[in-house]
């Protein structure tokens, strides 16, 4: 290999390693701080203690918002699956005028400013009389996360051999049986990946939730956001660290079910 080749490769690797450190470091810092024994933020941490985690779990308002977030993310994911998978199925299998436009509609929440979606839900819910309720959060988050379910569902269906569905029907399966016995088992990895994405997007959202929360009904990111405006102490690092652990678990789950590379980059 020529010298210029190795030099080019070395500098590329150098930039890449720096970029990866850039990506990992802030998260490591947060995790590190969460174990410090000092009363103020300190990195590298001094000593090693679980007390900030203990304090977090003793603060019922934090734990409650953790539950609110989990409940919201789970139900929004379920809603997005129930709506997104059948719609993806029809869009992938049927040819009809306006199909492109409807696909675009399903994916459009992805590119529109999330903060505008947040205020739109607030304003709409106010006129309809359900502002700052769980339902407002729920519908906002279903709209927010549906594109992720749609995208992976459509991608798995496009790689799926339609002859298999025909074979199932040919052998006497009704359309419903065909879906549950033949199609779903095979697109399952894609659907699971989409569901995990949806869960996480809901779980970490601030822009939609911040407009539709009350002191009693508040998700963990919004709770943290409000907390951070007035207090900066290692509790917040502990809470942050917990959400990072959830993220790591989700990423590993996706890696195990479909492979993280395949799930996050789309091969056409």
């Amino acid at each position: 290999m020529r010298l210029s080749d190795s030099l080019g490769r070395a500098s590329l690797s150098g930039i890449s390693i720096l970029a990866l450190i850039f990506l990992a470091f802030p998260l490591l810092v947060v995790i590190g701080i969460s174990f410090t024994t000092t009363e103020y933020l300190r990195f590298p941490p001094v000593g090693l203690t679980w007390k900030w985690y203990a304090r977090f779990f003793h603060d019922t308002s934090f734990v409650e918002s953790l539950f609110t977030s989990a409940k919201l993310a789970l139900s929004a994911t379920a809603g997005a699956l129930l709506l997104g998978v059948p719609a993806g199925l029809v869009l992938a299998r049927k040819r009809f005028p306006g199909r492109q436009a409807i696909s675009a509609l399903f994916l459009s929440p992805l590119v529109l400013p999330t903060i505008v979606l947040g205020v739109a839900i607030l304003q709409y819910a106010s006129t309809m009389g359900f502002a700052r309720t769980f339902w407002a959060l729920f519908v906002g988050h279903v709209v927010l996360v549906m594109p992720y379910v749609m995208r992976t569902t459509l991608a798995s269906l496009s790689g799926f051999d339609i002859a298999q569905e025909e074979a199932a029907q040919d052998l006497g399966a009704t359309p419903l049986q065909t879906f549950f016995l033949v199609t779903l088992p095979q697109i399952k990895p894609g659907v699971i990946a989409g569901a995990l994405f949806a869960f996480i997007i809901s779980w970490i959202d601030v822009e939609v939730a911040v407009f539709n929360s009350t002191p009693e009904l508040i998700t963990i990111p919004v709770k943290m956001f409000n907390y951070i405006q007035f207090n900066v102490d290692p509790i917040i690092a502990a809470v942050s660290a917990i959400t990072i652990y959830v993220a790591i678990v989700a990423v590993l789950l996706i890696d195990v079910t479909v492979g993280i590379e395949k799930a996050t980059t789309r091969r056409e």
Partner: peptide, 8 residues
């Protein structure tokens, strides 16, 4: 079927 369409 032409390519058998066996359920994998």
């Amino acid at each position: 079927f032409q390519n058998y369409a066996l359920f994998p």
